[in-house]
Design a binder for these strands. Structure first.
Length: 584
RNA sequence: GCCGGCGUAGCACAGUGGUAGUGCAGUCGAUUCGUAAUCGACAGGUCGUCGGUUCAAUCCCGACCGCCGGCUCCA
């Protein structure tokens, strides 16, 4: 791109950081009483926070953007200047910038204080910046919102203006196309258009109603999940949605996570609580059924729906809800079996996620955090076991120091979707805490009672969230084996209905998801509607097909598949279903 | 929860201090028509909920519920 740029990502960051300064300069020109907060570059652009007596309107943003373009056209040099502490203090006192003074106050004694000048604007900043404002080839303001000073609730509320900048207009235009693509893929938009799910005011925020078309996809996902877990030696269990509050007190959830739990309800004098997790139930099942090392490892799996209080402002489609289904399982094993068990889970992660096209991932091993429970020895053993499992599986990973859960180390996996966005899906966590709290033991070979290790793991995370991600990943066009309707049979005229009906019954009998459109409508309309619903295959039947025992195949992308005998079209789908479900 | 925006028929959207429209979907009728929208008629809304201001509110004000963009949070 730019031959003079040796480190493009660093220079793009500098460019955007400079664009943030230009934003602040523009705001100060148009609204001199606005006070500046901070204005960094971000992954995709930049923002700047301002304290101002009224909110910025979209019209304000337009004016500010125009002013920014004027500043860029001025090509003001951006000049670094080192100041003494006192000079800096005087400068920002005089400018009446209390937030800058607060930042200044927080800079360690030994650090150098620098400011950057550009035209009539000076900002406290450690840089780096591009040499002059003219380097910013293209800039656009995207949105504004509230933000707390220093991100802390209770601090003054500032107004944050977001924007992005690129060296060239072409790159900005490409980015805007990318944003539009993300908007088009939004699972909330597609979920509505394609009839996948609903959240209703009447029903309550963050509670998902799965409509039939979404539910069909969910069922396929759950079927695959159950089949693979059966094969990996898991035992499926069912547990209730509420439990006595005492159980949550014993597990420690009530102490640690009460803020995220719904309020208890009273039933005949005892308090009950909606479950935020499945683990205590699985522990109770363990306690009831396992005594000997001969029974280990034992793996209890459940698609368990849990309820967590999330603040109203954080809810987001299917990605952040208050009731969701974890693809949960708990493995109880001897300490010496941790690495083997983790290795098996890693294999299962692949088997579960590869079919959905999640081939790219980043893996993180999180180690012991501050204020954790458990002995040094336990942490040491478990962390080493996780590393060993990753190494044996040949999975590259990064260490996330101190990011483990308080009860044990964990492996997190982030997967990349078709747009390159990353989603944390799988998590595997070792737990020393709960076996202790519930005094779990098994009888060892030597006849001693030994505490088992517990492993929590979820592969998809939550079925709701995973589905939302899939909708965006596939843009609503689910692959044949996963689509809510795999085939739509479209008739040309009423006289073709019996033939079409016969085929439809045969498909149903083979477990193929089929819909029919026998309406007295023109074939063009039927095709259009099936295509808008992203049905993978349309089978059109008219006089010719009826006579020859064929169907005329049309794919949802509009490409024709020609006339083929319907039995062979049927077995093609059966084959795809078998490989998709790994039943073959 | 906080800051800002928003909430009109199933969906997408107009609109006004004197109780509302358009398109698609729906229903009915006609059409039986071969690869992305056949024609016509009809019907459909206590304008998110509750309260207030007013002779009169969907429109103004307040609270609540929900949605959107962020902040914060995310065991």
């Amino acid at each position: 791109m730019n031959p003079t740029t040796r480190e493009p990502e660093i220079s793009l960051k500098a460019l955007r950081h400079s664009a943030a300064h230009v934003l602040a300069q523009a705001v100060k020109r148009l609204f001199p009483s606005a006070q500046v907060g901070i204005g960094p570059a971000t992954e995709e652009g930049f923002y700047y926070d301002f304290h101002f007596e009224r909110p910025f309107s979209p019209e304000d943003l337009q004016k500010i953007e125009a002013e920014m373009k004027a500043i860029i056209a001025e090509r003001s040099p951006i000049v670094r200047r080192a100041l003494s502490r006192k000079e800096a203090r005087d400068l920002f006192s005089e400018k009446d910038e209390p937030f800058k003074l607060e930042i200044l106050h927080g800079i360690p004694e030994e650090s150098e204080i620098t400011v950057y000048d550009q035209g009539d604007f000076t900002d406290l900043c450690r840089g780096p910046h591009v040499p002059d404002t003219g380097e910013i080839g293209a800039v656009k303001l995207l949105s504004s919102s509230g933000a707390y000073w220093k991100g802390t609730e209770g601090n003054p509320s500032l107004q944050r203006i977001y924007g992005t900048a690129f060296p060239t207009q072409k790159e900005l235009d490409d980015y805007l196309v990318h944003l539009e693509e993300i908007r088009q893929r939004d699972h909330r938009k597609l979920g509505k258009e394609l009839g996948f799910f609903k959240t209703l005011d009447e029903n309550g925020a963050g509670m998902v109603l799965w409509l039939p078309r979404g539910a069909r996809i969910r069922r396929v996902i759950e079927d695959i999940w159950k089949i693979r877990h059966d094969r990996h030696g898991y035992q499926y269990v069912y547990t209730p949605h509420i439990a006595r509050l005492d159980l949550w007190k014993k597990s420690g959830h009530w102490d640690f996570y009460r803020d995220s739990m719904f309020s208890p309800m009273e039933i005949e004098g005892a308090e009950f609580e909606l479950k935020p997790m499945n683990c205590p139930f699985h522990i109770l099942i363990f306690k009831e059924s396992i005594q000997s090392y001969r029974d280990l490892p034992v793996r209890f799996a459940e698609l368990g729906t849990v309820y967590r209080y999330e603040r109203s402002g954080t809810l987001h489609g299917l990605l952040r809800v208050r009731g969701f289904t974890q693809d949960d399982a708990h493995i109880f094993c001897r300490p010496e079996d941790i690495a083997t068990e983790i290795g098996k889970v890693l294999k299962l992660v692949d088997e579960m996620l590869l079919p959905f096209g999640f081939t790219n991932r980043s893996v993180y091993l999180s180690t012991r955090p501050e204020g954790s429970v458990g002995s040094d020895e336990n942490w040491e053993v478990a962390t080493r076991a996780l590393e060993e499992a990753l190494r044996t599986s040949g999975i590259p990973y990064e260490i996330d120091p101190g990011e483990g859960v308080f009860y044990g180390p964990k492996i997190d996996m982030k997967f990349h979707d078709v747009l390159g966005r990353t989603w944390q899906l799988s998590t595997i966590q070792v737990d020393f805490n709960l076996p202790e709290k519930f005094d779990l033991t098994y009888r060892d070979v030597s006849g001693k009672d030994v505490r088992p290790i517990m492993i929590h793991r979820a592969l998809l995370g939550s079925v709701e969230r995973f589905f939302g991600i899939l909708v965006e990943h596939f843009k609503g066009a689910f692959p044949l084996w996963l689509a809510p309707e795999q085939v739509s049979i479209l008739t040309i005229a009423d006289r073709h209905i019996p033939y079409a009906e016969k085929i439809a019954r045969a498909l149903e009998a083979s477990g193929i998801r089929v819909t029919t459109d026998f309406r007295n409508e023109k074939i063009g309309l039927k095709i259009r509607e099936a295509q808008l619903l992203k049905v993978p295959q349309m089978w059109i039947v008219g006089d010719r097909e009826m006579k020859e025992g064929t169907v005329s195949l049309r794919h949802r992308d509009g490409s024709p598949g020609g006339a083929i005998p319907w039995e062979s079209a049927k077995s093609d789908i059966e084959n795809e279903n078998r490989s998709g479900l790994a039943l073959g």
